[in-house]
Design a protein around this nucleic acid. Structure first.
Lengths: 193, 193
DNA sequence: TCAATAAACATGCAGGTTGTATGTATGCAA
DNA sequence: TTGCATACATACAACCTGCATGTTTATTGA
């Protein structure tokens, strides 16, 4: 009858703590932004101490990076799944899947606003690796043929920014319809043009 | 022979101090980013005290807002001037003028990265009022006719984000050529489509 | 010309934040 | 069970922000 409950393996405890911190941090980062969220707030929310946070993450930015990375992975997974389900016309199916996945509260802010500002566009590009831009590039190369690679890359980059802006506008409460139509017009005109 | 030099009018002194603080703040914000720039650093650079800063600006964010506003005005002025000089084909002339004006060091970071993150997209839209998106919308309405207003707005918004992304890529050292061509292809295909 | 007033700026302080150094308890391996 | 590494808590120093309070300088009205 000692206070010794079944011992929790270290690996499990660690993983649980990590995801707990990431979840609580995400909640506050989304609600108040990166700068306005303090580490004391985060650990209060998670009901632990700052020691735990700094044990698992190098610093506040490292924790934010983990949050953003998880978000980017969730986005990619969602889009991939949706786009795969819809067989033909991968372009417009992927487009809709992207908008839908991006409408999850906070996601746009994390990936499109705070992420680039805090981590830099370069690091964000690394995190996104194989994500949206890559898919877009592949789609474009088959749709609009006969561009040299450099221009194809630039076009994919620019268009991906247009998608991002549309997703952000929708996330901020604008009517999705005009944006969805505008983007498909943009893509469509590239094909025929 | 008293130490009384000609008295400096208050208005002049104030204006000088204001622009001095804005210039020094711009330099540091551009070099190190908003969060990593402290008000002590700024006033050290300007060779004054924090008292002066907080006399002229409500807080650090207010100073940053002034920096961004000045930058947006300088950009708009540059583009307007260039675009006006080139007579016909306002669209591609304006495009080139935009890329050129946006290539001024630090401008892209201020207006496209830190600005939206620190001030919010809404405030940034207010600052940009009558700037790029408006011009783009007007250009599009004559080029691609027969869209309803809502879709036109969305299209202008998305395309303006594409321009921004291109400008940012160029500012980060990418070859401008592919981006310039990609954007003109995008605009061009809208016309014919 | 000369007080009186207000504006422009400097200084000092309180509260809060970050990152680290140090302390403690718990799992784990020999 | 003994020793060590891991997981976490506590304590501390440095820093920053914003305000409250001085001090100097221009401006105004008589």
């Amino acid at each position: 009858m000692q206070g010794k409950n079944t011992p929790v393996p270290n690996a499990d405890r660690s993983a649980a703590m990590r995801s707990r911190l990431i979840a609580c941090a995400r909640k506050l980062f989304v609600a108040n932004g990166y700068a306005e969220t303090s580490t004391p707030e985060i650990v209060r929310e998670a009901k632990v101490t700052r020691g735990a946070l700094y044990h698992h993450f190098k610093d506040k930015q490292d924790l934010f990076c983990a949050v953003v990375t998880a978000e980017a992975e969730a986005l990619a997974k969602s889009v991939e799944k949706e786009a795969l389900a819809a067989g033909q016309d991968a372009m417009s199916a992927g487009s809709l899947a992207f908008f839908q996945a991006m409408s999850k509260p906070g996601r746009a802010r994390l990936l499109l606003i705070d992420g680039p500002a805090v981590l830099g566009t370069q690091e964000m590009a690394r995190i996104d690796a194989g994500g949206g831009r890559r898919t877009l590039r592949d789609g474009l190369s088959s749709a609009a043929s006969g561009l040299e690679p450099a221009e194809l890359d630039a076009l994919a980059d620019a268009l991906s920014a247009a998608y991002d802006r549309a997703a952000l506008a929708i996330a901020e409460g604008h009517d999705p319809d005009p944006y969805v139509r505008a983007m498909s017009r943009l893509i469509g005109s590239l094909k025929s043009g």
